[in-house]
Simulated scan of single mutants.
Amino acid sequence: MSTYEGLEAQLRELPKVSLHDHMDGSLRPATLIELAAEVGHELPSSDPDQLQEIFRTNANSGDLVKYLETFAHTAAVMQSAENLKRIAREYVEDLAADGIVYAEIRWAPEQHTAGGLSLDEAVEAVQAGLAEGVEAVAAADGAIAVGQLISAMRQNDNAAEIVELALRHREKGVVGFDIAGPEAGFPPSKFAASFTRLAEQMLPATVHAGEADGIKSVRDALVHGRAQRLGHGIRVAEDITVTTGPDSRSKTGDGGEDLIEVQLGPVARWVRDRQIHLEASPTSNLHTGAVSALTGDAESGMDAHPFDMLYQLGFNIGVNTDNRLVSGVTLSGELAALAEAFDYSLAELADFQVNAIEASFLDYEDRQALTAAVLEAWNA
């Protein structure tokens, strides 16, 4: 077993928190194949391992729009209450198997009504499946809590209706709102009235921004989206200037170590100083081209991700999977990959769990209790 595999196995046993994981991008390959056969939808492969590899290869295109094309396959099998319920139940079981004890799962109900379900029926089916999953985990002597984040698809211009849907179910499993889909060309300002409605009703929002679009998108999410968190958000690094120069303490100018000067622009400073949480998804950020947009290098690897720079500068950043099926990842694997790239200790990996808990949409008392429980396990 390699060091990476050993660390991933160790991390799988530790309690973790996931804030950015799309249910409709995280189906079990075998389940997708079975359900696709039932509904007559053609997949690129009927072998689970091969299908997973095809999705992962397609995801690693460097283009968010192409990355999102995979969802046509998953959405095709998620058009009935029975299938939604099953997928939600399995989703929770898979999270728990990876050591996740709290998750805010996001999905877009408006993409699951082609089979005749109403928006409310779709949400109710998913909630029933989530509840069954929680019960199944408890029956196996585990523990997990989940909440729904209802996503509106930016390109559909249907945010107002989806906001009302989220508000109707806020006491029945829904903990917040999100907008997803193609980022460029669909800024939060287009849905400003919907975000105002959420604020008036005090339902929190996280906004996809700073992934496929740059710093203007981040600023728009903060101003018009009233975002409490940023989905991905890593292109806030565009507003950070890092310069190096000779050590001014060296009298000769020779042999001195380089000094690094860091300047934060107004958006980056606002995000950092007010601890707006960044829901980073390292592998997905590589797959969608978010990292290469910063580096200018399409071949950028994990060590080029701005994650460590943002962490070292004091940004509130967490680790997520985004889409476990599409990118072929787990949260334990993402943490291990970051540890390998940046030489993180377990204590630093624990920091990311605390960051996520503090930024979650749980009540204050629940956040405090969860933080204590998670740190006790990590410290042990």
Rank of each mutant, 00 (worst) to 15 (best):
N156R: 15
S194G: 15
S189C: 11
A180L: 06
A114C: 08
S217T: 06
A136M: 07
A138Q: 13
V174Y: 11
R106A: 10
A209C: 04
A122Y: 05
N158Y: 09
P188T: 09
H112F: 02
L198M: 08
G115Y: 05
G176D: 02
A122I: 00
A136H: 10
A138C: 04
Q148D: 07
R154V: 04
V123K: 03
F195P: 02
V101R: 14
I215A: 07
L167K: 12
I215C: 06
L95I: 13
S217H: 04
V146R: 01
V174N: 14
V163M: 05
K216H: 10
R170L: 07
R197N: 04
K190M: 12
P109R: 10
G142V: 08
I150R: 09
V175N: 00
I100R: 05
I179Q: 02
S194L: 00
A193L: 14
G214W: 00
P188N: 14
Y91C: 10
G147P: 08
Q111I: 02
I100S: 01
E104P: 01
P187Y: 10
I215K: 05
G116A: 12
M202K: 15
P109A: 06
E132G: 02
H169Y: 14
M202C: 12
P109F: 13
D178L: 06
V163S: 00
R170E: 06
Q111T: 12
A131K: 11
G115A: 07
L149D: 00
R154L: 09
H112T: 02
G147E: 12
L149W: 01
E124M: 10
